[in-house]
Amino acid sequence: MEMFEINLTSVVQLMSFLLLLYILKKFLYDKYFEITDARKEKIEGEIKKAESLRKEAEEYKEQAKIELQKIRERTDEIIKKAKEEAEKIIIDAQIKAEDEADKILKSAREQIKRERAEMLSEVEQKAGELAIVLAMKILKGALDEKAKKEYLIKVLKESEK
């Protein structure tokens, strides 16, 4: 029954185990607890930091959204304005062009009228002059009756043109 003998070895084993326990506690377990606590704290801190950063980022995102909306509205407005302006300009230009055309037409008509009047007065003058010349010739009697008639008709025809 040597296998089951309990002797001084048990005391030695107990002491050596307690020594092992003490040294492991001092060098491993305490450090392990320390490090796990530190790691936990660090992770918690990082998570909190990340959370706050995320919130900040969300705020920025919201702000950017609002800003973008504003910019979009403004650009829409600008484009609308520009379109209106363009339309206005086109209409103005059309009106102006029509006016101009009217003016030009009017002035051309007036000119034609004036020229016609001038021509008429010129013709009248010439006719008068011719009449005078004719009268002079008649008066002078240098022409026979037939020549007189022919000449008169000719002059009249000319003046009618």
């Binding site: 309990i6 001084l8 070895t9 084993q13 092992l20 040294i23 060098f27």
Partner: peptide
Amino acid sequence: WYTRLNPLTIAMSWAIIIGLIIFAVKV
């Protein structure tokens, strides 16, 4: 009982304990 010892048990357990202590201190 207090005068008898198992030298092999003690030697082996001390070898293991020393190995573990070296590992523990190193790590």
